[in-house]
């Protein structure tokens, strides 16, 4: 279990003189759930953007399964096996729910224009597989996203369901690592508790490795194997939740008061 799946080496990025992130250095092992926490503006989402190829780091390296991800386009990163969700839910709102998870299998499939035009056996088989995998992924969230919902546009979904669909969409890309950007933001306690359970299941049943940005300390405590704390672009602590939450630097810089109360 201790294979270094994702290795972040001295990662820094500067935007016009501002150090958005400096010298971030940690690794994620296969099958781990790692939470990245920190106050707003700590550089967490920038970190995700760098992994997924949307922002190029100024220095440092991101190594995934022994190969550097630097210089890859976002779609290539996804093809290597890293999928993500977005902080401000960004679904394909006018595509149906099923299409949303079907389209994200793009990089795992290969039928082109000719296959579609001549309806080759390969095309039909692949189309069938895409659909089945899509429905399977949606089924992970119980009955909320399947059945009559499959052919409804994503824009009719409620907020919580949109977040769920985003996770389903990331799952559908058949990744090894899923980056979750504030998965429970805006959910009520009942919903976030349920989703916390599902995040655990993502690892235990589906075998995904998970890196998660989260503000909800309850969720972080419940599922994380390790926690990395950022502040102003710098790593101020990392370790298990208990270690981190009792770290004086964290308490001072981030929580401002004992972590137990904050949750």
């Amino acid at each position: 279990m201790s294979e270094r799946l994702l290795d972040i080496q001295n990662l820094s990025v500067t935007f016009g003189g501002l150090n958005a992130l400096s010298d971030l250095d940690f690794h994620v092992d296969a099958g781990e759930i790692v939470s990245v926490i920190g106050p707003n503006g700590a550089g967490k989402t920038t970190f995700f953007n760098m992994i997924s190829g949307m922002v190029t780091p100024t220095s440092g390296d991101i190594v995934f399964k022994g190969e550097s991800l630097l210089g890859l386009d976002p779609n290539q990163v996804t093809a290597r096996g890293i999928a993500r969700t977005f902080q401000n839910v960004r679904l394909f709102a006018n595509m149906t729910i099923l299409e949303n998870v079907m389209v994200s299998q793009h990089c795992r499939t290969k039928q082109g224009i000719m296959g579609a035009l001549f309806q080759t056996g390969g095309f039909k088989r692949e189309e069938q597989e895409i659909r089945e995998h899509g429905e399977k992924v949606l089924g992970f969230f119980g009955s909320r996203l399947v059945g009559f919902r499959l052919n409804q546009p994503a824009s009719v979904l409620s907020y919580a369901n949109r977040r769920r669909l985003e996770i389903a969409r990331a799952m559908a890309t058949k990744p090894e690592v899923i980056l979750l950007d504030e998965p429970v933001a805006g959910m009520n306690p009942k919903e976030s508790e349920e989703l916390t359970g599902l995040i655990g299941k993502l690892r235990d049943e589906w075998g995904f490795t998970i890196v998660m940005i989260e503000h909800d300390m309850g969720v972080v405590r419940d599922v994380s194997d390790r926690v990395v704390v950022l502040d102003h672009g710098e790593t101020i602590a990392q370790g298990s939740y208990d270690e981190v939450s009792s770290d004086p630097a964290v308490i001072e810089a981030y929580l401002g008061r004992p972590a137990e109360e904050a949750s």
């Binding site: 935007f15 922002v55 190029t56 210089g71």
Partner: peptide, 13 residues
């Protein structure tokens, strides 16, 4: 916004 931030990468595709 994000694409603008990407540094001038060498030709790939």
């Amino acid at each position: 916004m994000t694409t603008a931030m990407r540094s001038k990468a060498r030709p790939r595709t």
